Simulated assay, not measured.
Amino acid sequence: MLRCLVLEHPRQWEDVLSKAEFTYNAMTNRSTGKTPFSIVYTKSPNLALDIAVLPKCKSSSAATFTDTYKEMIDNVRQQILSSNQRYKDAVDAHRRQSLFKVGDLGMVRLRRERFPTGTYSKLSRRKIGPVLIIAKINDNAYTVALHADCNTSPTFNVSDIWAYKPPDDGIILVSSSELSSSEPGED
Rank of each mutant, 00 (worst) to 15 (best):
S44T: 09
K127C: 01
N25P: 01
A26W: 03
I161H: 04
S153H: 14
D187R: 14
N29D: 11
N140M: 00
E113K: 07
M27R: 12
V91N: 08
V131S: 07
H94K: 02
L5G: 00
L49P: 01
L17E: 07
T23V: 08
L47V: 05
H147T: 12
R95G: 00
H9D: 00
P45F: 06
L5C: 03
A148K: 05
N29I: 02
D139K: 00
K19S: 07
D92S: 11
L47F: 06
W13A: 14
V102D: 14
Y24F: 04
L7N: 07
L47G: 01
T143Q: 12
F22H: 15
T42L: 03
K43V: 01
Q85W: 06
R112E: 14
W162A: 08
Q97E: 14
Q79D: 07
F65G: 04
S177F: 13
A145H: 04
D169H: 03
S177E: 13
C57K: 05
F65R: 05
D92L: 15
S182I: 04
K56H: 10
D139F: 00
R30A: 11
D67K: 14
P55D: 12
L54H: 05
S181L: 03
L7Q: 08
S83T: 06
L173S: 04
R125Y: 08
V131C: 10
L2V: 13
N46G: 02
G106K: 03
M1P: 10
S121A: 12
G106L: 05
I73N: 07
I39A: 02
E113A: 10
R11K: 12
M1N: 14
L99K: 11
T35K: 04
V131G: 03
L110A: 00
